[in-house]
Structure formats: structure tokens, C-alpha cells
């Protein structure tokens, strides 16, 4: 079994997409980790559905917690100068109104035309929409960060999603544990492979056809 990237390394790769001054919303689960890898010298305004703009890194253990400052994943975060708070409706006005630059979401499945399924596996419980549908519809750019395959090795990148959708044609980029893929009107472009992986190996674990970029690179995983 070849080595795939762990969650923290994927979060570091996500953080490379952050540009100074950007408003970024990090979804539940793996995406939230990226708040701890902001490149030095850049100010990112992290937006939270529960009504915060401009929070800082996640506080891992006990110290200097403010009990009233949590991100949407229920994790305590640090306040930063310039942070603002507002009500939940305002938070979603920012999302639906197109004011958020970048959204990073987890996924169960992504289709070749950018459909996203991430809220409901009908075999498991009731499903949690949360903020995912609003974020997928409203953001200027949507990056999905996910494991490339299911636990039994099946591609999560499909010609058509089989799970209930979160939103149609919303995904711009996939950062997986083996590759970086850009979604374009012309198809899925394989831009990067994880260290030790070839484009053929990535294709063999991906249902839709991948167009290999002329400048295909190995993922740069330094922070």
C-alpha cells in the first residue's frame, strides 16, 4: 500500500491557497485544521457560520480559552485584532451574498462537472446539511479536501455522484491525499501528485478521465 497524505499534511497544502487579506470559510472536519497553517506574513480573515470574521488559530489544549469563542466545529479559537462578531443571519448573508472568497469543504463524492455530495450518506442516520449547501452555492471559489478513495478503495471522484447532492457544479479544485485536481469546463486537470505517486496511479483510482497538466508537479508540502 502506497503512502497517502495525512489530514494535517492535506491541511498544509490547503493553506498554500490562502492569499493575503482573503476571507476564508473552513468546513467541518478536516478543512478546519488549515486555520493553524496560515503562511507567515499573511492575514486571512476566517469566517464562521456562527458569526465570526477574523478568528485565529485553533486552541488545542486548556490554556487561554475564551468559553464564548468557538468555531463552527465546536473548537475554541484565538481572537485576533480586527475580529468582528455578528448574528447567524448576517453570517449567511455574507456567504450567499458572494462576499466570501474561498470555502474549503470535505466531501463524500465529487463528480466530474463539480457536483458535490457531502452531507448525507443515506445508509447512515439522518444527515447533516449544516452550512455546507450555502457555502457551496455562495463562495467565489470552492476547494474540496478529501481522501481520494473510500475505505474499500473505491474512487470518491465519480462521473456522477450517487449520494444526495449538496450543490451542483460548485467545486473548483480538489486536494486529495494523493493529488491536486482542478475542475474546468474542459474537464478535470491533474495538476499535482503526492510524493511517490505517478499520474497513471492517480488515474487508476479516479473514475472520470483526468487531463494531465503540461506542468504536472509533485505536491510541495513544506509550509
Amino acid at each position: 500500500m502506497k503512502r497517502t497524505l495525512d489530514n494535517e499534511t492535506m491541511a498544509k497544502r490547503v493553506a498554500q491557497e490562502f492569499e493575503d487579506g482573503m476571507v476564508v470559510n473552513l468546513g467541518f472536519g478536516m478543512p478546519i485544521l488549515a486555520a493553524n497553517f496560515v503562511p507567515e506574513g499573511k492575514r486571512i480573515f476566517f469566517h464562521a457560520e456562527n458569526g465570526i470574521l477574523g478568528y485565529g488559530s485553533i486552541i488545542q489544549e486548556g490554556q487561554d480559552i475564551d468559553p464564548d469563542l468557538i468555531n463552527p466545529g465546536g473548537l475554541y479559537v484565538r481572537p485576533l485584532p480586527g475580529m468582528s462578531v455578528f448574528n447567524h443571519e448576517e453570517a449567511f448573508d455574507m456567504i450567499r451574498g458572494g462576499h466570501v472568497d474561498l470555502v474549503v469543504l470535505g466531501a463524500l463524492q465529487v463528480s466530474k462537472n463539480g457536483d458535490l455530495a457531502n452531507w448525507f450518506n443515506p445508509a447512515k442516520g439522518i444527515g447533516n446539511i449544516g452550512g455546507a449547501m450555502d457555502l457551496a452555492v455562495g463562495a467565489k471559489k470552492v476547494i474540496v479536501v478529501m481522501e481520494h478513495t473510500t475505505k474499500d478503495g473505491k474512487s470518491k471522484i465519480l462521473n456522477e455522484c450517487t449520494f444526495p447532492l449538496t450543490a451542483r457544479e460548485c467545486v473548483d479544485m480538489i486536494i486529495s491525499d494523493i493529488a491536486t485536481i482542478e475542475l474546468t469546463p474542459g474537464g478535470m486537470i491533474l495538476k499535482e501528485v503526492a510524493p511517490g505517486w505517478s499520474s497513471e496511479e492517480v488515474q487508476s483510482l479516479t473514475e472520470p478521465h483526468l487531463i494531465v497538466a503540461d506542468d504536472l508537479k509533485e505536491m510541495d508540502l513544506r509550509v
Binding site: 458569526g51 464564548d68 469563542l69 481572537p79 448574528n87 447567524h88 443571519e89
Partner: peptide, 11 residues
């Protein structure tokens, strides 16, 4: 309200 404790309360 205080910080993120505002959330859905005003709505």
C-alpha cells in the same frame, strides 16, 4: 451578547 454566543439568538 458575548462573542460567538450571539449566533442564532437575535434571530
Amino acid at each position: 451578547y458575548r462573542l460567538a454566543a450571539r449566533n442564532m439568538n437575535p434571530i
